[in-house]
Structures are given as structure tokens and as C-alpha cells.
């Protein structure tokens, strides 16, 4: 469509020799710019509707008494900060914030350390190295709910293979998913499993970008093994490390599948995070106002890390 109007336009312009040259050039430029914008219009419209609108709407809902009744009557009275007050003052809030922090820190720590060890290992050249490394991506590519399903059976307290394996070395069955003391550890283990490939892949490509000459020069000065890691690898990997950590935090904050599938936020809210609590309030209790308030808090936390990410990323590109 753009093509035909453009072609017709230039034909008309060419057929009118007496036209003011400046005006014609200006009009041609406007037309050119319009044609270029047309490429972006669908994407901008989509982003406005599916990212812009939800954020604005969610901010608004956070200050409205938005419940099941709203869907019938269409009325959602403004309540100011009442939803936030209700959320923050509830005894659940401290639990969810603490769980979110523990879940995030625990997951990131596990994913990062193991991912880095894997990346360092696969940096060696050996037969089948590349094939093995790409097969390691599988846990990350599977639908999370499929991975969650098999872990639920592995972690089962009675018939699960993990407790059976622990039993053979004399450890009593652990109630992985049903005891409030260990359920959070269990969901962290599963999230670490899913996150390792992502961490390994980014860190591996970071390692590949460190020039070999640095290690050769370091070896002449006696820097090998652990010393080479601390004096050469780590400083050069730092920008990638920052990006991996911040992205890890952002992805972990939104995790829903794993927790809902494994424990549903229980037992006794032991695995309830900001994300699952927002879901619970909106879609199980149909209290969309307080659900939105919780997810607005989640937005703010994510946004802080997103800004950190963009700054770190720019620095990584500049360097």
C-alpha cells in the first residue's frame, strides 16, 4: 500500500514542472518520513496496547476497589492508597517479601556459581565439548511446567527418587514440598536447574571474548590456574557478570509456573512470593485492586533492576 501511494505521488510530482521547488522538496521529505514511519506503526501500536496500556491500567487498578462486582456493575470506586495499606499491613506481606528476596538470592547464587563453573569447564577444548554444551540448554528450552511436573515427582516425599536415593545413604525422607521449612529450598533447587543453562551460555560467550594473549602474557608472569582466574578472567568478565546477574534477578522476580506447579504458594504460604501473591489475589480471590497493588510493587522492584541493567549494559558496550 505504501508503495503505490509513494509511486503515484512521485509520478504526480514529476508531471508538475511548474511547482515551487522548495515546497516540493519539503513535501517529498514529509512523504518519505511518513513512509518510513509506516514500518514502525504496527509495532508501536502493539507495544502501546500490550505493554503501555497494562502498566497504566495496573497503576490505576491499584487505587481502585476493583472486584467481581466491577465486572457486573462497571463501577470501580477510587480508594486512594487503601489497597496498598491493606497489602502492606497484612501479615502475609512480610512473608512474601522475605520469600521473594530469599527465592531470588538463592536462585541467582546457585545458577550463577554452577553456570560459571560449567562455562569455565566447557572453555577447555575437548572432543564432544560443543555438542555436550548445546545439549545442556535443554532444561531451559523445555516448557517450565513440564520441568516442574517431573520435579514434583522427583521431590515427592513418599515415592520420589530423591528421597529413595537419600534413603540408601541413611537419610530420612525429607518432606520437600509439604514442609514449610524446606519447601522454599525445593523451589529454589528447581529454579536453579532451569537457570543454569542461561547463565552458562552468557558467561561462556563472555569467556570466549577474552583474548588468549592475555592468558599467554599472564602465564609468562606466573599467573596460571586460580591466579589467572582472579587476575585475568574475573576482571575481564565483570561486565558480562553484571548483565547476567541483573537479568537473572528480573527473570526470577516473575517466576510463577514453578511455584504454582510445585507448591501453589504453600504450605502455609512458605513459598508465596510477590508474583504468586498478586496472582492469588487477582485470580483466586478476584480482588483485582489489591492484586494490582502487589504487582505494582513488583513493577517498581523490577524497574530498579531494569535501570541498573540498562546502565550496566551500556557500560559493557562502551568498554
Amino acid at each position: 500500500m505504501t508503495t503505490t501511494t509513494l509511486a503515484a505521488g512521485s509520478a504526480r510530482a514529476a508531471a508538475a514542472p511548474g511547482y515551487g521547488a522548495g515546497r516540493r522538496r519539503r513535501r517529498a521529505r514529509t512523504r518519505e518520513r511518513t513512509a518510513q514511519w509506516m514500518f514502525l506503526v504496527p509495532a508501536i501500536a502493539y507495544v502501546l496496547v500490550f505493554f503501555g496500556y497494562p502498566i497504566v491500567k495496573n497503576l490505576a487498578m491499584g487505587s481502585q476497589d476493583y472486584t467481581v462486582r466491577t465486572f457486573v456493575s462497571g463501577e470501580a470506586p477510587w480508594v486512594g492508597l487503601a489497597n496498598y495499606a491493606e497489602v502492606v499491613s497484612s501479615s502475609l506481606f512480610r512473608t512474601t517479601v522475605l520469600n521473594t528476596a530469599l527465592f531470588t538470592v538463592g536462585s541467582i547464587l546457585g545458577q550463577f556459581v554452577i553456570g560459571l563453573l560449567f562455562a569455565l569447564f566447557f572453555k577447555r577444548r575437548f572432543p564432544l565439548g560443543n555438542v555436550l554444551r548445546s545439549l545442556l540448554l535443554l532444561p531451559w528450552l523445555l516448557p517450565m511446567i513440564a520441568g516442574t511436573a517431573v520435579w514434583k515427582w522427583i521431590l515427592d516425599q513418599d515415592g520420589g527418587i530423591l528421597n529413595e536415593a537419600l534413603g540408601t545413604i541413611g537419610i530420612a525422607p525429607v518432606h520437600w514440598l509439604t514442609s514449610p521449612d524446606v519447601a522454599l529450598v525445593a523451589v529454589i533447587i528447581v529454579n536453579v536447574w532451569i537457570g543454569i543453562p542461561f547463565n552458562m551460555t552468557l558467561l561462556y560467550s563472555g569467556l570466549q571474548n577474552i583474548p588468549d594473549e592475555l592468558y599467554e602474557a599472564g602465564a609468562l608472569d606466573g599467573a596460571t590456574g586460580a591466579r589467572a582466574f582472579w587476575h585475568i578472567t574475573w576482571p575481564n568478565l565483570r561486565p558480562v557478570v553484571s548483565v547476567v546477574l541483573v537479568l537473572g534477578v528480573i527473570y526470577t522476580l516473575k517466576v510463577l509456573d514453578i511455584i504454582l506447579g510445585l507448591t501453589g504458594g504453600g504450605p502455609a504460604n512458605a513459598t508465596q512470593t510477590l508474583a504468586t501473591d498478586s496472582y492469588r489475589r487477582s485470580f483466586q480471590e478476584f480482588s483485582f485492586g489489591t492484586g494490582a497493588a502487589v504487582s505494582n510493587i513488583l513493577i517498581v522492584v523490577s524497574l530498579v533492576f531494569a535501570v541498573v541493567y540498562l546502565r550496566v549494559n551500556r557500560r559493557a558496550v562502551d568498554e
Binding site: 500490550f50 522476580l253 510463577l256 498478586s278
Partner: peptide, 8 residues
């Protein structure tokens, strides 16, 4: 976070 988009 996806839950924000889903909510709205």
C-alpha cells in the same frame, strides 16, 4: 512481569 500484563 507477566502477571502485570495478565492482570490488565
Amino acid at each position: 512481569p507477566g502477571i502485570v500484563i495478565a492482570n490488565s
